[in-house]
Computed example of a mutant assay.
Amino acid sequence: MPTPSAAGGRPGDGSPAALAHALLDTASITRAVPDRMRVAPAEPLPAGTLSAAQELLDRVTLALGLPEVEVVGEPDGLTAVELAVSRRLALRAPGAVADGEQEQAVRSALAAFPGPAVLVPARDGTPLRCWVAGPENAPAVAVVSACGMPVGLVARWLGALAAEYRVVTWESRGLFAAADGTGLGDLADHTLDAQSEDVLAVLDGFGIAEAHALGLCGGAVVALAAAARSDRITSLSLWHGDYELGGEAPKTAHQRDVESLLTMVSRGRAQAAAMHRLISRPSTLETLRPDIAHYLIHPYATPELLRRYGLLNGAIMSADCRGLLDTPQPALVVTSDRDTTAHPAGSKFVAASLPRAELRTMPDGDHLTAFDGGGELVALAREFLHSVTVPERKGT
């Protein structure tokens, strides 16, 4: 994922550049929470510098058009969400800011890949926050991320593929607040049908006739459903998919636990609020990878987000995928025996059942490394994409 280094700052160095990039990277949360977000510095600030840190933070957030954030001296009493944002911001005592440095930092952050969202209407009118990159006339790839995850989690995939492909992605319907401060908007439909229709709506929004669908985790299910719905999805790659397959494949303890949680919180606002209080405890961060915790915690940031996540991801995790496995498009199915999040047996069954699928079981990597877009995975994706998009190789 691109870092602030090009703008003269490195993550956590206290510069306006690093701060601007980190603020945009955590904006999905600060826009979604109803109250002013509290954050603590990376380490105790020298006496008298807390107000200077707040002043710099205020100037940069204002210039970026983001909600105000309050600096507190110590992390004690902060929620898991506030701690995750604090760790990403990594506030330090600000040094001297050169003339024009703040303005340049803000311009660079706003222009950084993957850039600002483009709003595309879903077929039921729900606004979808979308991104597009790469040559307009190149073969298209729709990156279908895991439900509820901010775009930053797949930014490396977008950057790795955009040199050769027209790459599009979007954030889950109803789970991300608009930049204009109007809030989450209505969740008109949470079904898997609606989420698979969103794949096609995004293609429509960017004038793309057909695309390869690259699905990650629950996004693999959405990609499968979109391919079953339309031959505009010409091929698939399904990475560490989280599938419901009845008795055909076991599930991990994590899958069973998350399904139970989603069922509970989707029942109503009272249940979601009660579970949110438990998830807000700082101990929640112990189970999240530190460098991406601010992404992973997004759908748990408020009771309403959690309730909607229960509906949306619950629809994905409970959908019996066996009815989608006659999908005729060529497919690459990728998993790892080290995945303790989504059971690799599910991917193996899917690959064995799809008419034109190839299974690759990677020797290394867990569930989350699939999102990292590392060199070996990108090379595998490019090899498969080449086989299904180069005219003389298609169908071989």
Score class of each variant (00 low, 15 high):
Ser15Gly: 12
Ser28Pro: 08
Ile29Arg: 08
Thr30Cys: 09
Pro34Gly: 14
Pro34Arg: 13
Arg36Thr: 15
Ala40His: 02
Pro44Cys: 08
Pro44Met: 06
Leu45Ser: 03
Ala47Asn: 02
Thr49Met: 07
Leu57Tyr: 05
Asp58Ala: 14
Asp58Leu: 08
Arg59His: 12
Thr79Glu: 11
Thr79Ala: 12
Thr79Lys: 03
Leu83Thr: 01
Ala90Asp: 13
Ala93His: 02
Ala93Tyr: 02
Ala96Lys: 02
Val97Cys: 08
Pro116Cys: 00
Val120Leu: 05
Arg123Glu: 13
Thr126Leu: 02
Leu128Lys: 04
Leu128Pro: 04
Leu128Glu: 05
Val132Pro: 00
Val132Trp: 02
Ala133Thr: 09
Asn137Arg: 11
Ala138Gly: 06
Pro139Gly: 10
Ala142Leu: 14
Met149Ile: 07
Val154Phe: 06
Ala155Cys: 09
Leu158Glu: 10
Gly159Leu: 09
Ala160Thr: 07
Leu161Phe: 10
Tyr165Ile: 01
Trp170Pro: 00
Glu171Asp: 09
Asp180Lys: 01
Gly183Ile: 11
Gly185Tyr: 05
Asp186Arg: 15
Asp193Met: 02
Gln195Gly: 08
Ser196Cys: 12
Glu197His: 07
Ile208Ala: 06
Glu210Pro: 00
His212Ala: 10
Cys217Asn: 07
Cys217Trp: 01
Ala228Gln: 13
Ile233Leu: 04
His240Trp: 06
His240Ala: 13
Asp242Ala: 15
Gly246Tyr: 11
Ala249Trp: 12
Leu262Phe: 11
Ser266Val: 03
Ala270His: 08
Ala272Val: 06
Arg281Trp: 09
Ser283His: 12
Arg289Met: 10
Ala293Gln: 13
Leu296Ile: 11
Pro299Gly: 11
Ala301Met: 04
Leu305Phe: 07
Leu306Met: 11
Tyr309Arg: 00
Tyr309His: 14
Asn313Cys: 13
Val333Arg: 07
Thr335Glu: 09
Thr335Phe: 03
Phe349Gly: 00
Arg356Tyr: 04
Leu359His: 08
Thr361Pro: 03
Asp366Lys: 01
His367Met: 14
Leu368Arg: 03
Gly375Ala: 15
Ala381Gly: 07
Glu383Phe: 01
Thr389Ser: 15
Arg393Pro: 01
